[in-house]
Amino acid sequence: MKQQILTDKKIIITGASSGLGESLAWQIAKKGGIPILLARSTEKLQQISTSLHEKFAVLTPFYPVDLSNKPMTKKVVHTIISEHNPIHGLINNAGVGVFSEVNHISEEAISKMFQLNVEALIYVTKQLLPYLLQQEHAHIINIASQAGKVATPKAAIYGATKHAVLGFTNGLRMELATSNIIVTAVNLGPVKTNFFRTADPEGKYEQNVARYILNPDDVAKKVAACLFVRKREINLPLWMDIGSRIYQLLPGLCERLLRNQFSKK
């Protein structure tokens, strides 16, 4: 049944040139959907589009765009709407992280995280929203993070951006509760992607959490399976979801008991 749900559905994916975004494109195409790819790298997008066409005989449109550039983003969104009507879904996946203590992080890194993780996500959603409200049904999925539920040292800024994504997602869901649009947040622990090249260039954190790290293909399968299914949140891994729930009830105790675990970055 879920295979049929995605047949011929056109879904925009931001940050689609690698990692989870690329895996999502493959899963959607595999299930009969049409991923529309957004990212900065023309070369990478072309390679993915060609590979998907060869594997699944699906035409995969792609649009190189710097999502921190609002005029460029607006133009691309309007072009997609005019060229690929109807659009059925949006997965806001693009994001960046830099792990550093507040006292040492650069202003440039702070701005970059908020521009891409928060402002771009909101801006793309806002540009598409009037159009999606006119469709029979639609789905907006925002890739957030477990860091948006449990803040940790060296991720105060990154965690703040993901807190913002969760706040935006929850508020948007309530605003659209009686509409045709489903709104879902995806809260992930560490995922094996290029994210860590920027967030953790020394590889310390990735090494420390190696046994817990999520496979992007496994995550993509679960997200794709929930497309056009009314679901509030997807939380992975399960143990981290349980931990975040306990943290909400006993934050002080958790911070004391898990101090060493929280400081693995």
Rank of each mutant, 00 (worst) to 15 (best):
E107K: 14
G97W: 13
K55R: 15
I48H: 00
I13T: 04
Q27C: 06
V102N: 01
I213D: 14
L116P: 04
I36T: 06
Q134Y: 05
P61N: 03
H84V: 02
R197T: 14
Q3S: 04
G159I: 00
T169E: 10
L20I: 15
A160T: 03
E136C: 02
K154H: 15
H137F: 13
V191L: 14
N180I: 06
A160G: 06
I122F: 07
L132D: 10
G171Q: 13
S17T: 04
I28A: 02
V150T: 09
Y131K: 01
L6Q: 03
F114H: 07
L166K: 01
A57L: 12
L38M: 01
I213W: 09
G21M: 09
G95I: 08
I11H: 01
A29D: 11
G97F: 14
Q146D: 13
K70Y: 08
F62W: 10
L227V: 03
P237L: 02
F262V: 00
N92R: 02
K204M: 09
H88N: 11
G15Q: 00
G189S: 05
P61R: 10
C226E: 10
A220S: 14
K75Y: 07
S145D: 03
V150G: 02
T7S: 01
Y205W: 15
H163C: 12
H139A: 02
I234V: 10
K162W: 15
L128D: 06
V209D: 14
P130E: 04
S179D: 10
Q3G: 02
K126C: 04
F228V: 00
S51E: 05
M72N: 14
N208L: 14
T152A: 14
E175M: 05
P251I: 03
M113K: 07
D200F: 13
R259V: 10
I91K: 05
T79Y: 07
V96W: 14
G15V: 09
K112W: 08
I12P: 02
T60C: 08
T152G: 10
L257R: 11
L133S: 02
K70H: 08
R232N: 00
V98Q: 14
A120L: 13
A177C: 01
S145H: 01
V150D: 04
P35R: 01
L6F: 06
E83L: 09
H78C: 04
T125R: 10
L38R: 03
A109S: 13
V118S: 04
I36W: 11
N142H: 10
E175H: 01
K265A: 09
N142E: 10
S17I: 03
A94W: 12
R211V: 12
V183A: 06
E175T: 00
H163Q: 08
A57H: 15
V150R: 13
K55L: 06
F228L: 00
N235M: 11
P216L: 09
N117A: 04
E83R: 12
L6E: 05
H78T: 08
D200G: 05
S179L: 06
P71Q: 11
I110Q: 12
F56H: 03
L172H: 11
T79F: 06
G97R: 09
S82A: 15
G167F: 08
P251C: 01
